[in-house]
Amino acid sequence: MPKITFISADDQQYQVEAANGQTAMDAALDNMVPGIDGDCGGVAACGTCHVYADDQWLAKIGSATPGIEQDMLALTDNATACSRLACQITLGDEHDGLILRMPAAQH
């Protein structure tokens, strides 16, 4: 049961408890974290669960996967090498303490 923290662009923190095997997007939606929309339900079709991980965490969760996730992020506003789609991050115990920052807007 990893505890993860979402931080909004204006530095509001939302700590949530996720279930093992759950995606970071689902953990955010379950806990009503504002700023993660997840309009498509987690099939990487909309790009509205864009988050940033710092280098240290990125090493653990991995960079955006080649294919649809990288393609979606390629033309997303404000995407960087640290960008991920939260729906493509599956959580486990090793992610306890994970910090994901959110962009100012998802659209």
Binding site: D71, L75, T76
Partner: peptide, 11 residues
Amino acid sequence: NRPQEFMLSKR
């Protein structure tokens, strides 16, 4: 199967 074209088009 063209996510980049989709994201571009939205903008």
